[in-house]
Write a protein that binds this DNA or RNA. Structure first.
Lengths: 312, 312
DNA sequence: AGAATAGTGTCTATAAGACACTATCGT
DNA sequence: ACGATAGTGTCTTATAGACACTATTCT
């Protein structure tokens, strides 16, 4: 194993604790920064949006980047740091915002630590995935130069050279855009390797709403089946059959629970009122809501390999 | 956002680059250590084993822990560090070991960074999951005091207080043991939060062999369907129907490819020779090999919540 | 010979998708 | 009145699992 101790993981070593304490001075090591970045997703006007902030300093000055910041050493864990950053960035920490934030879903996405990902120093970033229903516009009191929701279809998610495939969760199509259909005229490029992080996050969401009731996290407490369908359509970027979707959702035990009520008005373009539901207590969807089987992209090569092989 | 810059993620700030360089001294910050821990799994005599090392220094001296070590700042990425640690720990870096290591699968599992997880300092550990076919005994030339494969059924994986649930991948039964049936007389407790890390790793493997051809990574290049079934049975801890399993595996396109040959001898306890296969080129199993539907553990409460809610 | 296993055939219950149809609402 | 939508019914096909059966090999 590594000759250098400390930390969980490194195991033995000839040193007793005293010897170790004497020999080890953390400040003598080349420092590594630990940050937390958040891929915050929400649904606005029927399409997926991600929260971005504009960098006010080099490198990548003027570029858009994922919100994030330092892990406060000794003071907080990773989950707390992610929640804090998101609250600060959206300016939603104050009262009155609980309605939106209390339904926030936060989960760890993956960690990115290639030495070259930041020109200044070796930065290890723990990425988090967050989604919540229709979050308001940010800036409500933040110190960020600019923070805004961007449609993910406006972003350039094409894999850049230097970004190696990462391995987490289900590999899926990493071909950017697609969620909304139209990629804007001049796709926005993200700073650092944030395009890859966002791409991994999107893959994760697309896969996860298949077998978890997570899609309900994009909606307010009460919602209708057509609204839930709109979430799936926005995330997967595909139209779903309304009738079959409706029956399928109701057939999964614990996915949704009827409130007994209906909406006040029918759809915007007509139609009867829809019944309202709220999320059930299932943590796993059984059976799952499988994505429509796009034809296999021929056996040439999968999108992302999801395999790391050691080189001796 | 955080007032303190640097790093990808943190975005703006009033500072120009010069100001930033002047204001920021990494050595002035409370240091955070970044380590890489590896959950290395293999199959030995039909049951799942995990690689552990015995700690030779406090804290947790004498306890078993996951192999791991420092990330070398500025020199290596996380994936490389994990591969390096594993090679060092197993003593398999030399020649002659490629046969085993070239089939190694390595993927990131998750990152653990609660400040209290190590009494000495704030340590952020990036955990990796590794598996490979029937790895040999370690110690072949390592500096570890003791490293050995342990049946996972001998370990105490009950959630300890202070370990908060983490959120990655599919939640599954986190009730330890079970894989082998018999939990040993005195279950081994792991150092730090390594029981939770291992538990998360097991959950990940159990879920992932459902929809990925990963189970073949536990086997040599050529294998038989009954051997593949043994992998599933060991990982899931359940007997599977031999006939149905056989047909199902062959029905998934790209999962296995026939070599045309058979084994030299029949089974140890009789039976005809089995045909041999090797892994196909599918990266995703379509349709998936779903786990047998254990009855829902009643709607009292899911095993692990997989939800983190921000506290305003 | 007897026991255990590899592999196949068959039947049933369930789930997914295509399609048609009715009822309700907005314009 | 008309168009769009919510929700249900029905039919076809694919899949999962239970079970039976044959053939092959070890002891």
């Amino acid at each position: 194993m590594a000759a250098d101790e400390p930390s969980p993981g490194p195991t033995t070593g000839p040193a007793t604790e005293q010897e170790w304490l004497a020999a080890y001075d953390p400040r003598a090591y080349t420092p590594i920064a630990v940050t937390v970045d958040v891929v915050a997703l929400t649904l606005r006007r029927g399409s997926l949006h991600v929260l971005l902030v504009e960098r006010g300093a080099p490198p990548h000055q003027g570029c858009w980047a994922l919100p994030g910041g330092f892990l406060r050493a000794g003071e907080e864990g990773l989950d707390e740091a992610a929640a804090r950053e998101l609250a600060e960035e959206t300016g939603l920490q104050g009262s009155g915002a609980e309605a939106a934030l209390c339904r926030l879903h936060l989960e760890q996405l993956g960690t990115y630590g290639v030495p070259e990902r930041d020109p200044r120093m070796h930065v290890v970033s723990v990425a988090y995935l967050a989604f919540a229903p229709n979050l308001p516009d940010p800036r409500a009191g933040t110190d960020a130069a600019a923070a805004a929701w961007h449609p993910v279809s406006d972003l350039d998610l094409a894999p850049r050279s230097g970004d190696r495939p990462r391995a987490t969760g289900v590999p899926a199509d990493t071909h950017g855009g697609g969620v909304d259909g139209h990629t804007g005229p001049h796709p926005i490029r993200l700073a650092f390797d944030h395009a890859r992080i966002l791409s991994d996050g999107l893959d994760r969401v697309r896969a996860k709403i298949e077998y978890s009731p997570l899609a309900t996290a994009f909606l307010p407490y009460d919602f209708t089946i057509p609204e839930l369908r709109a979430v799936y359509e926005a995330v997967w970027g595909e139209k779903l059959h309304p009738g079959n979707f409706h029956r399928k959702v109701l057939s999964v035990p614990g996915f949704v629970e009827s409130t007994g009520g209906t909406t006040e008005r029918g759809g915007a373009r007509g139609g009867p009122r829809a019944r309202t539901y709220h999320a059930g207590d299932a943590r796993l969807l059984h059976p799952a809501l499988l994505r429509p089987t796009r034809e296999e992209p021929e056996p040439g090569e999968g999108p992302s390999t999801d395999r790391t092989t050691i080189r001796p």
